[in-house]
Design a protein around this nucleic acid. Structure first.
Length: 681
RNA sequence: GCCCCGAUGGCGUAAUCGGUAGACGCAGCGGAUUCAAAAUCCGCCGCCGAAAGGUGUGCCAGUUCGAGUCUGGCUCGGGGCACCA
């Protein structure tokens, strides 16, 4: 018996024993119930952070518990290895993204092993290897042939100085993060996945997920955003119409207010806007101005609402009244028809817009007990569709919301100018990225044959790994040895697509590949049915993935079922645990110029009073006071990260794991406390 | 701006159905043990107050015999908003 607990020796011995006996190896065994415990795989950013340690500790506890209960447990691990940070690191350190990524994977694997997780390392893979991404290319070509992948124009952030497309993250206050140039919206051809074809199933299946947090199901439901409304048309007045029966289509969930329409607003990219701008320089300028700034919805939704009349008039479909078409910077071309009817009296945004531009406001809904409709200030009840009853609406007067929508939809249908329509907020998934470090899109552009998918025999399209990153555009565009090729159909000189896929593509099916990572002849095989039948038993990861990653993964499972790759597994993740963040106190000093210098908690001594309450803090280096800030998510910007490696080195993996599990319930945020670690030791 | 979540001691939290707020743990304080320390054990530990007592679950209202819990309205913090992963 040793006097002192020496975690390094004891843990190393235990880990070696587990390794040699293959304790964590998972083998299909039909005689035992299976338990597939999956943690979201890490992006190999350099080293593990505390969030990883927490995530994988929770998974490991569940895995070991079920193993002891007699389950056949699979706990795999891999690397979500494509992505932007590798290109940024390449630029900063002059290392190719591939080399940087593989280095990080090696280091982080060592760290994970030192934590002693019961992971089946024989199933490990990285998504940036041709052995993995070849199957995405193969699937892409199948889906392209079925029309589930198609090409259309999409809007991107264009940096006019660096001549490059930027991610939303790289646009700061409307400017490129490197060049500082004002960003413009630009439309380019992109490939899209037809996720909207699965909108109904993705929505209804949410009811079959009792093992998911209600919060996540609700977020997905709202994201898909099914609404029943009316899609209808405003015929163009003869002098403005290009063709005799040209119409402007809009969608609304408030068809009951149609008699209160006083103008129509279209997106800056709408064809009518373009047409009106031809001989109207002022409008053309405004449309140009609308193109300034990035494409992120949060930015568009918070900017000042602006508009300009086009001089084009359309006819109200029920009254025939002439209504002017405006261009509005708040109308999104990507939602519905890129045009909306405006009813200032009963929509808050339209109300503000009408006030600003002095447009008529016509009340057509009244609420019992609310007598004073003001044309100067908005009140919540103006938009109340539960209590509202139509007024000033001719034959529709006195009807409530539902009856009014029914009557109006029927009248529009009778005139062949519209009907009820189910509309989804969900848009098709644009997967083209004008970046290097990703899976090449397997398409060949031929002058005579058009877009031709790369034939199976020529797959994979391998991404060249020894490249130089310049920060302005993908190196693939400058590599004839990559893009020059022959058309697979006619044999003529052709050009290979240089865009790569969205990295969400990799993470949308990796959990299936863990069942059969060694298969070199097929994307998936029958072992998927064994491990994934009834869904992966437990999925653990950050709440930040509540919508996109989980929705795309659900979509892929249904896609791959319909392509005949897997049977009907149902939903991919039977039980979902969304772990909370790891937070830590922050410390700073005010610098001249209003900036703050953030100081890592490890470099600070906190002084407490006799009750243990903090009264102040000093910097270890100089003993002078620092300001105690709030408690925030561990991040580089606030410099409050605690390196798990230092913790493991000092206290051992078991202490780290014990503290992290004990300190807080897994789905809530965890406050870091060095003192708490000491207590777990 | 829109969708979702949260707020209870110095800290992490608990209170299953609307019924004693603060279980359990960390930190802190006091004591025992020890030559001394570590470890261990015992006790104290929301705030104000000498005590009696008062007060207290982000804020403002409401429902109720009774609200941390239910309703309405806010404030602050966090996650997401489709090219960060």
């Amino acid at each position: 018996m040793q006097d002192k607990y020496t975690p390094a020796d004891i843990e190393r011995a235990a880990q070696q024993h587990w390794d040699q006996t293959g304790a964590a190896r998972a083998v299909e065994d039909a005689t035992k119930p299976k338990y597939y415990c999956l943690s979201m795989f890490p992006y190999p950013s350099g080293k593990l952070h505390m969030g990883h340690v927490r995530n994988y500790t929770i998974g490991d506890v569940l895995s070991r518990f079920h193993k002891m209960q007699g389950y056949n447990v699979l706990q795999p691990m891999g690397w979500d290895a494509f992505g932007m940070p590798a290109e940024n690191a390449a630029l900063a350190n002059n290392v190719p993204p591939a080399a940087w990524t593989y280095q990080n994977i090696d280091y982080m694997r060592t760290q994970l092993k030192s934590l002693g997780f019961a992971i089946d390392w024989e199933r490990e893979f990285a998504t940036c290897t041709p052995e993995y991404y070849r199957w995405e290319q193969w699937l892409f070509t199948r889906l392209y042939e079925k029309g589930l992948v198609y090409k259309k124009l999409g809007t991107v952030n264009w940096d006019p100085v660096d001549h490059t497309v930027l991610a939303n993250e790289q646009v700061i206050d409307g400017r490129g993060w490197r060049s500082g140039a004002l960003i413009e919206k630009r439309e380019i051809p992109m490939y899209y996945m037809k996720i909207t074809a699965y909108a109904e199933e993705l929505l209804s299946e949410l009811d079959n997920l009792p093992g998911w947090p209600d919060q996540v199901r609700l977020m997905q439901k709202n994201w898909i955003g099914k609404s029943t409304g009316v899609r209808f048309a405003f015929p163009l007045a003869d002098e403005f119409a290009k063709t005799p029966d040209e119409k402007l289509w809009v969608f609304t969930t408030r068809a009951d207010t149609i008699m209160g329409v006083t103008f129509v607003a279209v997106a800056a990219e709408h064809p009518l806007a373009t047409r009106a701008a031809v001989d109207n320089p002022e409008l053309a300028n405004f449309i140009e101005e609308c193109k300034k700034g990035g494409v992120a919805e949060a930015d568009i939704a918070t900017m000042e609402k602006k508009g300009m009349p086009t001089g084009i008039y359309v006819s109200h479909p029920l009254t025939g009244e002439q209504v002017e078409v405006w261009v509005g910077n708040y109308v999104l071309m990507s939602y519905g028809d890129g045009a909306v009817m405006a009813v200032p009296a009963h929509d808050e945004r339209d109300f503000a817009f009408a006030l600003k531009y002095n447009l008529p406001i016509r009340q057509v809904v009244a609420v019992d007990g609310e007598t004073s409709f003001s044309h100067e200030s908005w009140a919540e009840w103006y938009a109340d569709k539960q209590r509202g009853v139509l007024v000033n609406s001719g034959k529709y007067d006195g009807l409530g919301y539902e009856a009014a929508v029914d009557a109006i939809a029927a009248d529009l249908a009778a005139k062949d100018l519209g009907d009820k329509k189910v509309q989804f907020r969900l848009r098709d998934w644009g997967i083209s990225r004008q970046r290097y470090w990703g899976c090449p899109i397997p398409i060949i552009h031929c002058k005579s044959c058009g877009d031709v998918p790369v034939p199976d025999a020529q797959l994979p399209v391998v991404l060249p790994e020894n490249v130089e990153i310049t920060g302005a555009g993908s190196p693939l565009v400058k590599m004839p040895e990559f893009y020059e090729c022959k058309c697979p159909k006619c044999g003529a000189d052709a050009r290979r697509e240089t865009d790569t896929m969205d990295t969400f593509f990799e993470s949308s099916w990796y959990f299936l590949r863990y069942a059969c990572p060694d298969n070199t002849t097929a994307m998936v095989d029958e072992r998927v049915a064994y491990w994934c039948k009834g869904g992966i038993d437990q999925y653990i990861g950050g709440i930040e993935h509540a919508i996109l990653h989980l929705l795309y993964s659900r979509f892929f499972t249904k896609l791959m079922r319909d392509v005949g790759l897997i049977g009907d597994l149902g939903e991919p993740f039977a039980n979902l645990l969304t772990q909370g963040m790891v937070v830590a106190p922050t410390f700073y000093r005010d610098l001249v110029g209003g900036k703050k210098q953030w100081i890592n908690p490890a470099d600070v001594d906190v002084v407490t009073d006799e009750r243990g309450r903090p009264t102040g803090a000093t910097l270890k280096a100089d003993g002078l006071p620092v300001v105690i800030g709030g408690t925030e998510k561990m991040s580089k910007s606030k410099n409050n990260g605690v390196d798990p490696q230092a913790l493991i080195d000092q206290y051992g993996a078991d202490t780290a794991r014990l503290f992290i599990m004990f300190a807080s319930p897994p789905d809530q945020s965890l406050e870091w406390s060095d003192a708490g670690v000491e207590g777990a030791y």
